[in-house]
Nucleic acid binder design. Structure first.
Lengths: 355, 355
DNA sequence: CTGAAAGCGCTTACAG
DNA sequence: CTGAAAGCGCTTACAG
């Protein structure tokens, strides 16, 4: 057969004896507005079914409409499809919400450069524009590209609080500062007075917010807290732990799950028992399944879902510039249970042979 | 500013003092063929850089070209972004290869129906056509939809061996039959003579191929093998295990990782030791990390990668129908180690108090 | 109530 | 060597 294998609106129109434009209207439910008689509509739908019509999305998209495609981009090295990855749970949430909204997801894999990082414009074309909007994940960001994206009027949202000068960034974040209060309370109630805050190398605002929130939460309590900054997980050595405990800390608050893992190893190495000899709370859950310590649960899946919702409203408002753009969707973290927290062990230094 | 925020070819053309068509040629490196002088080309590239041109992919796509989008579809309930999911590792491979080929991935999330299953045409439009081609994952399949897809000339490949009458399906599979030989050898060498094959409810050809391959491999050996079919993991009860061992089996070959998990639980329940009292080999690795038994390693990541490569060649050949379509890419499974295999324990029935 | 027409941004024959 | 034109399949004012 020489006729095109794929049906288009004009084929339906011919079969139904109407114009192609009419087919389009019926398809898009603009029929009501235009008062196309039910009989004609029925004829058109029949023809559609008979020919197995399927709209051409590229054409719809080109014509200026939305195409139901939500992009996901990350400036990070690896795309978060690996289960180990911190971002994986965000992606799960994004996917869940996409299902609910009837949207498809585009994972921008093509944008990876030789060094493994990703760019938006690096490869000459902003592939993102293929989607109605995009969700951007990851610690890294490129301010110039973000600015340019914004300048083009392309709708996007970040997962995690991000600031770029001159751009009003829409983002989804967890309310880290608020999540710190129960952490402090748990420690105070258990009787701790000297607490070390094991801080990861700062990679973004959210981390800064956690430390800040913790310090502020601790301010009104009997707790004396001090931050101990490490440059990498390797710094969480037995020497480091010895120093921390010698300084009098009876509890440690760990900022990230990577550090929590490192701490767990070091504790094992020294044979220190949790929580009998040292209380620990992690401010993050381990993507590999909770983690060994009581931890604040960052609602990553929920944040992913909200990112989709937020993006949808940004897309909406970008076609209607007078509407206010929702700038952030704080969501609550689940407070830690008390499992790895116990009253301070006054004799711990001696018992563990550290002193 | 009233001019459109997004640069298009005609803007460049105006700035460079050429026609829009010329811009297109330079962009697509058809310049050489058409002998556009270097100076003109340079002028155009300059203008492109100045205006920050980015092609409109919808337009390119509409015009008939490829758009570098690879779809991923599954007829299954849940999309494989969850780490627990069997298919997740395939997706990882797909993503890896996509990065290498400079392709983007579309996860078809919109196609989910109320009951959780997915359809291609169910929602009225074949969203897949938005991509250059698609990879289809999952046990389930809908023959009618596959036939229709094929009929439309849409390029697609399956992960896993699939047959649909009247359609030449391109697929990537692992050579399960071949993988069975080392399994049998391991058991024979350890001295086993009576081996039970724990078979899952058959959901597709790959499973049938495993059982078939195992039986055939065992045929030339001293092994007496018998299949024990269960309807669900719940059937792998202590009663079931008792029956199997009473029938004389000294080793069990498990078909899937789900069954392997169930078997592990039942063994624990009865306090039966592996491999001292019973040898076990799983024909599948547990996505949650290997699994407790020696197992055949299905190269899922590699299969994902090859699915992309295969799809690319299908896309290629569909624009050139005289080319032969690669129909399958068998890849090798890694044979099991011998950890959960030991010589048969003749006294096991008595020791474990089963008899 | 329905059709003819413009145009979204591109690529690709086809002229000159 | 380069431009004018057609057309990919749609949607949306605009006529009638």
């Amino acid at each position: 057969m020489t006729r095109p294998r794929i049906t288009r609106q004009s084929d339906i129109a011919r079969l139904a004896g109407v114009s192609q434009a009419t087919v389009s209207m019926v398809l898009n439910d603009r029929a009501g507005t235009n008062r196309i008689p039910e009989t004609t509509q029925a004829r058109i739908r029949e023809a559609m079914a008979e020919l197995g019509y399927v709209p051409n999305i590229a054409a719809q998209s080109l014509r200026g409409g939305r195409n139901g495609l939500i992009g996901v981009h990350t400036f990070e090295r690896v795309f978060p499809v690996s289960p180990e990855d911190y971002y994986h749970e965000f992606l799960n949430g994004i996917e869940e919400q996409a299902v609910e909204e009837g949207l498809d997801l585009v994972l921008f894999a093509s944008t990876q450069r030789a060094d493994g990082t990703r760019t938006i414009y690096g490869n000459g074309s902003n592939r993102m524009r293929l989607a109605d909007g995009a969700i951007i994940l990851g610690f890294e960001k490129n301010d110039d590209e973000i600015r340019r994206l914004d300048n083009e009027g392309f709708p996007f949202v970040f997962i995690g609080h991000r600031e770029v000068e001159g751009v009003e960034i829409a983002y989804v974040t967890a309310d880290y500062a608020e999540a710190m209060a129960p952490v402090v309370r748990t420690l105070v109630d258990a009787g701790h007075r000297s607490v070390a805050y094991l801080a990861a190398p700062v990679r973004g605002l959210p981390q800064a917010e956690r430390l800040h929130g913790f310090t502020r939460s601790a301010a009104g309590t009997p707790i004396h807290d001090f931050a101990t900054h490490v440059r990498s997980v390797d710094d969480v050595s037995s020497e480091w732990l010895r120093d921390v405990m010698l300084s009098g800390a009876t509890a440690i608050v760990v900022e990230t799950y990577e550090l929590a893992r490192a701490l767990a190893l070091t504790l094992d190495e020294l044979g220190i028992l949790t929580p009998a000899e040292l209380s620990v709370i992690s401010l993050d859950s381990d993507p590999r399944g909770g983690g060994r310590f009581s931890h604040v649960n960052v609602p990553r899946r929920e944040m992913g879902r909200r990112a989709v919702t937020l993006l949808l409203s940004v897309i909406e408002s970008s076609s209607n510039p007078h509407e206010v753009v929702l700038r952030s969707t704080p969501s609550l973290c689940t407070p830690p249970d008390g499992e790895s927290v116990a009253p301070p062990a006054v004799t711990s230094l001696r018992t563990t042979g550290i002193a």
